[in-house]
Amino acid sequence: MTALLDLLGAALLAAGSAFLMFGALGLLRMPDIYNRLQAGTKATTLGTLLVLAGAACLRPEWWPKLLLIGLFLLFTNPLSSQVLARAAHRTGAPRSPLTRIDQLEERGGGGS
């Protein structure tokens, strides 16, 4: 039983770090800040959650703290991306020429 749990935990760790790698690759390859944030924030959130779940399988007695880190990241990770995207847009960060439409710019600057 423990051996099985260890295997599951190790597999979760590997899967999590694979997603982290995809996220970092996206961060490097994407053409503008918004797409970079998109790639970065999704992959790192899932990647970290998988790694934390894997750690919980390998060390079940650590679950409260791992859960706390997971909840915290689940809540703050998208928030920091959003705040950064908003700051980038307000400061007029360049968009990729592939961009089709920007209804936020059409609305005009300022706002709440």
Binding site: F22, L25, R29, M30, R95, L98, R100, I101, E105
Partner: peptide
């Protein structure tokens, strides 16, 4: 991200 062509067509 893994596809070489990077097929995106972004917009807000």
């Amino acid at each position: 991200v893994l596809s070489p062509a990077l097929p995106i067509s972004p917009g807000i």
